[in-house]
Design a binder for these strands. Structure first.
Lengths: 332, 332
DNA sequence: CTGAAAGCGCTAACAA
DNA sequence: TTGTTAGCGCTTTCAG
């Protein structure tokens, strides 16, 4: 059924029907007729046809690296909440950590289909920059910062600094580090810098052999910890870039008979669910993932409405959650 | 830029350009011209306009109860993988466990915008049935079964039966149960039935006071376990409907000084990441969430192509993952 | 406040 | 193979 047919049934003109579904500007009488006809027919306008005319799709594209990661899911949840309340819908694409796909999707969204794009970024290259610059719709980047673009990000350096400091202030002198690739400016580079800063401020130096680079999952954290904890000279505390890595490290400690926190302290950034339920509850920095999603969506909606303006970066604070893995003894 | 303008630049006719982006049917010469023009202009066709003509949106709506639940995320990941490879895209809506919203979205998708719908269902009411019956596009239901519809689901009863049996065969005689609402036919009802069957087969009876109904989260599992484990007469094993509940129960056990598995065994259904990293690694039934997503998407695509046929239900098997929480002693 | 009519960008039937 | 043309369903001037 199309709007002409529907209008006929309702006993009004096409235009009247269209007005009903849009601004209004209609007499009470026609309004009633139309409502009755909707009741009968279940008619609702074809959205594609509307989009052709209005050049508005009411769709926002969301590009994310891994849907089944808790942090991504939480950001997306925030995005969805805002979009929903504004009658926008969410077109989701999953790059499965494939950088080429990320660019493909940006390209796909460049001209068509969506009114705006939210990119949950991990690694941002020059190629990204050039594609982003060619976009015809507004874009908001989440989790990374990039000059000239709209970004919502976390205080990664601050979080790792605080956590490392916390462990060192409890008397630890041999800090270890399990991070992720430096190509990730946030989780890789910034968290490293925070760690390094805290170590230096404590008058210590980081030993090369106490540094490892892992992937983002538990297994990788386990493997790297295994390497770090082999031999006799081992760290007395480890800062891990992510909760997953920390969990892997803790499993390794357990296996080696190391007691947490007595023999070795562990902390990490993320505050995902897993840390709370872990073998030894994990000290972590809570990052406001859902809020980041909410803010990003709102920033995007503003851009869509007001039109492109100057790039801005919103940084969200963190909160230290102290648990047993750094010596906090308490009931749950 | 529209296709006419683009065709002019390329030096071909509108139709030639359209053909290039669709079936083909084009001379090599024109093909080259068009490719060159794309290079120059970055043109790509307007998808809304195409949809108006073809009545195909290449969009699949996915309705889910909670994005940040690991099981949902994994199903969605499977869906996304298949859709992606078939040039379909995923329109995601999150009901936040709000049954009214679920119906709203079904309604929204009923006439418009999408070529098909995948519903990750929790509770399926008569109202659902009537809305589903009025859909104009194919629907696949994931996680529940409903006669007359296309469903992909798990063997919930079998999984809970096997896990309960496993614990009872190790000599436990006082089984406890922390489940979820019976309105959820899969996670609530079926898992209860499996538990009950195993208990009866072992010649035991379930004690009323050893039965609790929780929500789907850790905190609720913790609270219900607290109730179950108060007093002196407590269960010597607990089957939990979900991993999250089990984790909550384990935290409670730890707090009460109960040793797992010596004093009390715990098992549950789901095999989410959290169970592996738990205080005591959790015995669980692995459900093939991602595969369910893949199968659902493929079932839907088939329906979209072949047109609606008779409803079919695909049940996926489970796998028991035995860990320390039921007495399996092993290194990781 | 209303209806007629033009036209959004595209595809596909048709005639060449 | 190709180009012309009608028309998908809708919104939005414009004239009343």
């Amino acid at each position: 059924m199309n709007i002409s047919e529907f209008a006929k049934i309702a006993g009004v003109s096409k235009s009247a029907a269209s007005r009903y579904f849009n601004n209004g500007y209609l007499s009470e009488d026609k309004r009633n007729k139309i409502e009755k006809a909707i009741e009968e027919t279940g008619y609702s306008p074809n959205i594609s046809a509307r989009s052709v005319r209005t050049r508005v799709t009411k769709l926002v594209g969301v590009i994310l690296p891994k849907l089944s990661s808790e942090s991504c899911a939480r950001v997306t949840e925030g995005i969805s909440e805002v979009l929903d309340s504004e009658q926008y819908q969410l077109l989701l694409v999953n790059t499965a950590n494939d950088s080429r796909k990320e660019l493909d999707y940006l390209e796909l969204f460049r001209q068509n289909r969506v009114d705006g794009v939210i990119l949950l970024a991990t690694e941002l290259t020059e190629l990204h920059k050039s594609v982003l610059n060619k976009m015809h719709v507004p874009v908001v980047i989440v989790g990374q910062r990039m000059n000239g673009f709209n970004c919502v990000c976390h205080n990664d350096k601050g979080a790792s600094y605080s956590l490392t400091k916390l462990m060192l202030e409890k008397g630890r002198r041999k800090p270890g580090y399990i991070g992720v690739t430096m190509d990730d400016a946030a989780a890789g580079k910034a968290r490293w810098e925070g760690f390094e800063k805290a170590v230096k401020e404590a008058g210590l130096t980081v030993q090369k052999k106490f540094i490892e680079t892992a992937k983002f999952d538990i297994d990788s954290g386990y493997e790297k910890a295994k390497h770090l904890l082999s031999g006799t000279d081992i760290p007395d505390c480890i800062f891990c870039a992510t909760d997953n890595i920390a969990i892997g490290a803790m499993i390794c400690c357990k296996e080696k008979g190391l007691h947490i926190p007595e023999d070795i302290m562990i902390s990490s950034v993320g505050d995902t669910k897993i840390g709370k339920a872990a073998y030894t509850p994990l000290t972590t920095a809570h990052l406001h993932y859902k809020t980041a999603g909410v803010e990003a969506a709102e920033m995007l909606l503003l851009e869509i409405r007001r039109g492109s303006s100057v790039g801005r970066t919103l940084q969200l604070d963190y909160e230290i959650i102290e648990r047993e893995s750094t010596g906090k003894c308490e009931t749950v």
